[in-house]
Computed example of a mutant assay.
Amino acid sequence: MTKKLRPTLAIKGTLGLEADGRNFGGRERIALLLKIGELGSISAAARDVGMSYKGAWEAVDAMNTLAGEPLVHRAVGGRSGGSATLTVRAQRLIDVFQRMEAIHQRFLKHLSAVADNPLSDIDLVRRFTMKTSARNQIAGTVSTVQSGTVNDVVQIDIQGGQQLVATVTHESAQSLGLAPGRSAFVLIKASSVIIGLPDGLSRLSARNQLKGQVSYVKRGAVNAEVGIQLDGGSAIVSIITTASLDALALSEGMPVVAIIKASSLIVGTFDS
């Protein structure tokens, strides 16, 4: 069976004009004006650009109205007769639009060159714009899914070769399309992150024990916020009591382990 290749995503865009908040037109209407100037006939221009005769007349009327002055002078002579000429303003508009279109196409070409993989770059932008109350948002790739009757166990590879393990309902895993190779993200409340010391850790039932070091400490009256730079580049935030902060004697640069129960992870995907 031949594996279906993922289609290449290209960045495209169209240039349009507005007048007083109303759509003046874009490439199609400018093309119509250009053909009217070349052929001297609205009906002939409509046929050439693949537009209906009625649609062409309506487009010309709309452009004349929105421009605030005539763009096309018409000499009525019946459906097959008559003539049409462009005003100086229309000729200037065509020239300006063509210049703008050339600049626009160069911009799109440059944007495509910057985005070596447009699909992944768009996903990244979506991640930046995602809003959630969870302090910790970590992206990764699903590596394994162990299906169960009620719950599935999902392992997600993150930066630096570390893994996160989450338990989700089987129905949720199916709905999200979780499978090896699928891009996903994990949300973790800061209060769900327990901090431990790497030396002398007791055996724990928590599936997630991520190594890192303290990046900052913000002490409050009752609780403290502790930032942890995980091995490999990801970062995570924990909220603990000041009593725990003092008991562990946490300070910047100190090696620690972020401990999180698999049931405390919320898994999501970026695809619609």
Rank of each mutant, 00 (worst) to 15 (best):
Q155K: 15
S143T: 15
G78L: 03
R127A: 11
A59H: 01
G268L: 12
F24Y: 06
G227S: 06
L265I: 10
A166Q: 09
V257I: 14
I259W: 06
L86R: 00
V154G: 02
A247R: 15
G140C: 00
S183F: 05
S175Q: 12
N208K: 11
T241W: 05
V114I: 15
A206T: 10
T65Q: 14
V96T: 13
E38C: 09
Y53N: 15
I194P: 08
F128Q: 07
D116W: 13
A31G: 07
K131G: 09
T8P: 02
K12W: 01
I259K: 05
S263V: 10
T242Q: 13
E69G: 12
Y53S: 13
A19D: 07
S83Y: 00
E38R: 08
T269C: 00
K261M: 07
L210S: 04
G200Q: 01
R22H: 05
K211Y: 07
V257P: 09
A247F: 11
L66R: 02
A44Y: 04
G13E: 00
I194A: 11
V145E: 01
E252V: 15
Q209N: 08
T269K: 01
M63Q: 07
A258R: 04
A139M: 11
K218I: 14
V154P: 00
G26M: 06
I236F: 06
D61R: 15
V237L: 04
P180R: 00
A75V: 15
S52Y: 03
S191F: 09
G253R: 11
K12R: 08
A31I: 01
N64F: 05
T2L: 14
P255A: 11
A45W: 01
E28N: 13
Q229S: 13
G160V: 14
L164A: 03
L32R: 03
S264Y: 01
G55H: 03
L32Y: 01
D95I: 08
K12T: 12
I42M: 04
G253Q: 07
I94N: 09
F185D: 02
S202D: 09
S215L: 10
S52F: 01
G148P: 03
T169E: 13
H73D: 14
V222A: 14
S263K: 03
S215T: 13
